[in-house]
């Protein structure tokens, strides 16, 4: 079974279409009533690398207990997110401007706190990527990356907040975790059961690490190549509009930003154009959610935005 490792990721241009649609409950599993030894005997050497068919057979043998991706604990989500972030940073260079990064962290952290999931295992953290590309990524658990190209599509702090709140929305709804194939989850649980109460042995650790790497690849290839479903994007936009309203930002700034983005994106490009529905279709989805009147611009807010991000 193919999965993306870092090297493939680095050369991903043009290769898409690996993962299926990332909707629906994952983690349909597993193992009810089985003894560890039986599981392992049944799985032989292939524990770490179940394909979908094998996974289904394990599920059947185990008596199919319905599980969901929510069974990935926030602690495990945290470790998946760290590596997803590190892999993303192997393609992009951080933008080393402390003031701009601090500012983006202020706006983004407020967006996180105002969301329906203000607390994650390791919290929300934001970093600007030194890239002209128009893009943003949310790794599971709250590590969020936004390019300079994306920030240049923002004409106000409210628009920056809109971009970051959209990414927070993906974290809140765990869209990244939902991209992980069911078979990985089955494998991880199988190894967990085999591991028992003891510390991971060499072979189990190797197998679990392989499943981990594949899970990270599932998420990364969704973030950089395939994109989420339109339903997930709509969910993230809806979450963003809610967060903006709670904070007192002008939620219509999301539309402003999308309009600028729509004018700048290259159709068929390798950035947001590749992984997101068109800005026009997102605007059409968002408009009905916006309040009738826009709040007046707030002068000190606009001043600090221009001061910090004008040169970005």
């Amino acid at each position: 079974m193919r999965h993306w490792n870092r090297r493939q990721f680095l050369g991903w241009g043009g290769k898409a279409g690996l993962i299926g649609i990332c909707s629906g409950p994952l983690w349909t599993a597993l193992l009810a009533g089985c003894k560890t030894t039986e599981i392992i005997a049944g799985m032989g050497q292939s524990v770490g690398v179940l394909d979908e068919r094998q996974a289904q057979s394990v599920i059947r043998a185990g008596g199919a207990v319905a599980r969901s991706f929510e069974d990935i604990t926030p602690e495990q989500e945290y470790y998946i997110g760290r590596t997803v972030g590190a892999v993303i940073l192997s393609k992009y260079t951080p933008y080393q401007n402390d003031e701009a990064n601090r500012y983006v962290n202020m706006v983004g952290t407020l967006a996180g706190l105002a969301s329906d999931r203000p607390e994650t295992f390791g919290g929300y953290h934001f970093l600007i990527l030194d890239s002209e590309e128009i893009n943003a990524f949310a790794a599971p658990g709250g590590l969020i990356f936004v390019t300079r190209g994306m920030l240049r599509c923002c004409g106000s702090e409210d628009a920056v907040a809109a971009v970051l709140a959209h990414e927070v929305g993906h974290v809140q709804h765990q869209h990244g975790l939902q991209a992980i194939k069911k078979s990985r989850v089955t494998s991880a649980l199988t190894i967990l059961a085999a591991e028992g109460a003891k510390t991971l042995g060499g072979q189990e650790l190797a197998q679990l690490t392989e499943v981990f790497e594949e899970s990270v690849s599932d998420v990364v290839s969704t973030l950089v190549a395939n994109g989420y479903s339109r339903a997930s994007e709509r969910e993230a936009d809806r979450a963003a509009v809610t967060v903006l309203a709670r904070l007192g930002y002008d939620s219509a700034a999301l539309v402003d930003m999308l309009e600028i983005m729509g004018a700048r994106l290259t159709p068929g490009g390798s950035d947001f154009a590749k992984t997101h529905p068109s800005p026009q279709s997102r605007i059409a989805d968002i408009r009905p959610l916006l309040p009738k009147t826009r709040p007046a611009a707030v002068a000190p807010r606009q001043r600090r935005f221009e001061q910090v991000l004008r040169q970005v």
């Binding site: 470790y79 760290r82 390791g122 590590l143 991971l200 679990l208």
Partner: peptide
């Protein structure tokens, strides 16, 4: 249990070119 620090360490040992410096700095 499951995906934990031990697994991350193993991953990092196998993928030395994936750098976690900025991830640690962010967090």
């Amino acid at each position: 249990k499951g995906f934990n620090k031990q697994v991350e360490d193993q991953y990092r040992a196998q993928n030395k070119d994936v750098d976690f410096t900025w991830i640690d700095r962010m967090q």
